[in-house]
């Protein structure tokens, strides 16, 4: 797992993908920071809340090639015939993407320092709550993206499917609001699946255990599904 983790993390910086991702993230992060400064607030939650959309729509950049490229280059033969478990392969790749996201997210530490310098007391709890929430959200999205990537040999297909899925996740809340007048039952289910409402709770400083469990479950379920896809291929 370590070997795969290291290799995938290196791979981000061997192709433009890692740099593109970081550039987009830093650009928008910086943008939101300057807005906060311009409005004269030291409220870091707003930055994280705004980053939700950016995180959502840039995630396929990180995940599209993770599994699909191995299939195309046949390097999966090296991975699957090496003494590594399937879940080791999947979690190695998952953690590599999460680590790259961590590099991007590290920039928000600078934002926190900047904003704290303007405040009398730094909002530590708010900051850590947001960090945890963002990492959980990213983890869940990476697991979904990784699963999509395992379904196809083509990075492009993985990317497009990834964007479509991210769009769906984004739209869940609008579905809920349009449904709530007609069907309470369906709206209820959908609203529970909403990434946004759960993430908003983190950004507003609420650390709800059910949200933590929700994101962790999404990670576990999709990584498990990815393992099953690999397994299925062997039996195919």
């Amino acid at each position: 797992m370590q070997a795969i983790f290291r290799r995938e993390l290196q791979a981000y910086f061997k192709s433009p993908l890692g740099y593109i991702y970081l550039t987009i993230f830093f650009f928008f992060g910086g943008q939101y920071l300057s807005l906060q400064v311009a409005y004269g607030t030291n409220e870091i939650s707003n930055i994280y809340a705004n980053l939700f959309t950016i995180i959502l729509f840039t995630m396929p950049i990180l995940t599209m090639r993770l599994m699909s490229e191995d299939k195309r280059l046949k390097t999966d033969q090296a991975l699957l015939t090496a003494p590594v478990s399937l879940s080791g392969i999947v979690w190695g790749k998952f953690l590599a993407a999460l680590a790259l996201f961590g590099v991007a997210l590290a920039s928000t530490i600078v934002y926190f320092i900047v904003l704290s310098s303007m405040a009398t007391t730094p909002q530590w709890s708010m900051f850590f709550g947001n960090l945890v929430g963002t990492i959980l959200l990213a983890g869940a999205l990476i697991a979904i993206g990784l699963f999509i990537s395992s379904l196809t040999e083509s990075q492009m297909v993985a990317a497009i499917l990834g964007f479509a899925t991210m769009f769906m996740i984004m739209m869940v809340d609008s579905f809920v609001s349009s449904l709530s007048s007609q069907s309470n039952f369906l709206a209820n289910i959908l609203s529970n699946l909403s990434f946004m409402t759960r993430y908003r709770d983190f950004t507003s400083g609420i650390l709800d255990l059910s949200h933590v469990v929700f994101f962790l479950s999404v990670m576990a379920v999709f990584n498990f599904l990815t393992v099953r896809v690999l397994e299925k291929k062997r039996w195919g």
Partner: peptide, 21 residues
């Protein structure tokens, strides 16, 4: 078809495989 990560150098690749195995 040799399972090579074509974006790596030979050395990096062999080190990776060394760890992987």
């Amino acid at each position: 078809q040799p399972p090579l990560y074509i974006d790596m150098t030979v050395d990096e690749y062999l080190n990776f495989m060394y760890d992987l195995k």
